[in-house]
């Protein structure tokens, strides 16, 4: 399913957090949103998973405004991994994962055999099957993050949005998760902080600065020393990855003594 942010603007308490942002996420592609803190990445995502209503513009799924769908209808199509770390209540891991089926089930309807299988697969995929009966509050940050991704997968989304999914994950699970995003099926829009991971994981990147899209294109087109300096205020050497050719950034730490 094609996802399109169409002239999206979000105004909160008088300040414009996102300014007429337009971005295409073609079907089955992985598009990354990058930008410095406070550039409006998460706010733009919130509009996609319906936690926020844009003040102008629209989020379109295959051309149709998502606002014309009920919350439940869009939840059957769009799944999200938010920045919220989870819950105050000590649900078990399998209970949290099963809640991913909520938009597909009526009332308190129980999970069917296929849905339980779906949950098991997702837990195995995210390497949390062995934690199934454990309470989520007792998990480490990374384990909990993987549980939440499994919950999003169980939703069987056609569009998956993720807000900094690699938070708390060790490097093995970062790579495992981002590899999963490729070839997983749904259209993916992901906010990432690590530009090197973004470059490796995404087909296209959009760069946000102060709520505006300042660049978009393939990682090769977007990640240039000039843009990195302008947007992030950082000097970086950019070299192609010796095996994949993806542009990779090398940083030099400021050393005030020199």
């Amino acid at each position: 399913m094609d996802l399109r942010l169409d002239g999206l603007s979000v105004r909160i308490d008088g300040s414009e957090i996102v300014r007429s942002l337009s971005l295409d996420v073609p079907r089955g592609r992985v598009v990354g949103l990058v930008g410095p803190n406070g550039s409006g990445k998460s706010t733009a995502l919130r509009c996609v998973y319906r936690a926020l209503r844009p003040s102008a513009g629209a989020v379109r799924l295959d051309g149709d405004d998502i606002a014309s769908l009920s919350l439940r209808q869009s939840a059957r199509v769009v799944a999200a991994l938010t920045q919220e770390s989870g819950t105050d209540l000590d649900f078990t891991v399998e209970e949290v994962v099963a809640l991913g089926r909520a938009p597909h089930l009526r009332g308190n309807q129980a999970l069917g055999a296929r849905e339980r299988e779906l949950c098991r697969e997702a837990m195995e995929r995210m390497d949390v099957a062995h934690l199934a009966r454990r309470g989520v509050l007792g998990l480490s940050g990374g384990e909990r993050q993987r549980v939440l991704v499994a919950r999003a997968l169980v939703q069987e989304p056609r569009v998956l949005v993720l807000d900094e999914p690699t938070n708390h994950l060790d490097v093995r699970h970062q790579i495992r998760l981002l590899s999963l995003l490729r070839g997983i099926g749904p259209t993916v829009l992901v906010v990432l902080h690590d530009l090197n991971l973004a470059s490796a994981a995404c087909d296209r990147l959009g760069v946000l600065s102060e709520g505006r899209l300042v660049a978009s294109g393939t990682p090769e087109e977007v990640l240039t020393p000039g843009l990195v300096k302008n947007v992030f205020g950082v000097d970086a050497e950019i070299v192609p990855h010796p095996l994949t050719g993806d542009p990779q950034l090398l940083y030099t730490l400021d050393s005030p003594r020199h």
Partner: peptide
């Protein structure tokens, strides 16, 4: 209330996550 048990579960995950799972 018992009829709304699952939405209550979903709401416990946080308001944003709940929105993404179709619960207002």
């Amino acid at each position: 209330l018992r009829g709304f048990a699952r939405p209550l579960d979903v709401m416990a995950l946080g308001d944003e996550t709940a929105a993404s799972l179709g619960v207002d």
